[in-house]
């Protein structure tokens, strides 16, 4: 109870602030509507209710977003092109595939970097440079370019996810694989251990906490990568497409609903990685 109460208090404060802002931001248009209808001196509570019930509000009220999410997921056939569950699944599958690619690429690069000084110096600058390019500029080129050679659908989007998510994994794993202290490396040297044994007995287990920290960041930005990639290919569907069509048509409620689904998805994915981390920690004898 003592842990839930502060959380609920903050949540309540945010909701109140949101409702207040919805009145404030929707007021100009509501005034215009009321003037046209000849309504004058509308009492404040009635005015607020009008402001929270507009079709295309500047800022939709929380309950409008919630009901839109409900209508577009539970209340709708999953195969419908308007179903957020359908679009969410498209985004999720690209995210997961891209995350798997990105994690593997990140680990492979990190292993190459720590074992070979030349690859450290030749790869690392490119890896860092790759992240300085705005993904919004790269994504259309990749998606359209691959589309031109006949590669469409899941893979181009997963590649964008990979492009974003391999980076934290490389950086984290380079640090993690280098984390064993000199004394632990000396110990293995006294046993005349081979480099492969040093890797699997010492470096890999020592890097586990770093891997999970990186994967938590990686999976969240994988989702962002998938959404951004979808903006470049409106016919493919996905949450990014719902965001795009929502903004074309001024469907703010639809935009917010898609945003919340994406945020919820990211939260669930990060929680799953966190759960896997806990499980591995338990297997590795960490203090409960």
């Amino acid at each position: 109870m003592t842990r839930i109460l502060p959380v609920l208090t903050i949540l309540l404060a945010l909701l109140l602030f949101w409702y207040a802002m919805a009145v404030h931001m929707n007021a100009p248009w509501q005034n215009t509507l009321n003037n046209r209808a000849g309504l004058e001196n509308v009492p404040f509570m009635d005015f607020a209710q009008q402001a929270w019930a507009q079709d295309k509000p500047v800022l939709p009220a929380p309950h409008q977003v919630v009901s839109e999410i409900w209508n577009a997921t539970i209340a709708l056939d999953i195969t419908s092109r308007r179903s957020l569950a359908y679009h969410g699944w498209i985004t999720l599958s690209a995210t997961l595939l891209g995350f798997a690619f990105g994690t593997m690429l990140g680990i492979v690069l990190a292993v190459a970097i720590i074992h070979n000084d030349a690859s450290d110096r030749s790869l690392m600058p490119w890896i860092i440079a790759s992240q300085t390019i705005p993904i919004l500029a790269v994504a259309p080129m990749v998606v359209v370019g691959l589309g031109a050679v006949g590669l469409t659908g899941l893979v181009p989007k997963a590649l964008i996810s990979m492009y974003l998510s391999f980076f934290p994994v490389v950086v984290g794993m380079v640090k993690g694989l280098r984390s064993p202290e000199a004394i632990q490396l000396d110990l293995l040297r006294t046993y005349d251990a081979s480099p492969v044994q040093v890797f699997w007995k010492l470096r890999w287990p020592a890097a586990m906490p770093f891997l999970f920290a990186s994967m938590k960041v990686g999976i969240a930005i994988s989702l962002i990568g998938a959404v951004v990639a979808e903006l470049s290919n409106a016919s493919g569907g996905g949450l990014g497409v719902r965001l795009l069509t929502g903004s074309y048509n001024g469907q703010t409620i639809q935009i917010w609903a898609a945003l919340f689904i994406a945020a919820g998805l990211a939260a669930v994915l990060v929680a799953i990685v966190g759960g896997a981390e806990k499980w591995v920690n338990g297997r590795m004898g960490a203090r409960a």
Partner: peptide, 21 residues
């Protein structure tokens, strides 16, 4: 001698692997 595993070495710190029993 090291390659023949001729000695056991005990360091200042125990340097046990925390993930191993």
């Amino acid at each position: 001698a090291r390659r023949a595993r001729a000695y056991g070495y005990v360091f200042q710190a125990a340097a046990l692997y925390p993930w191993r029993t």
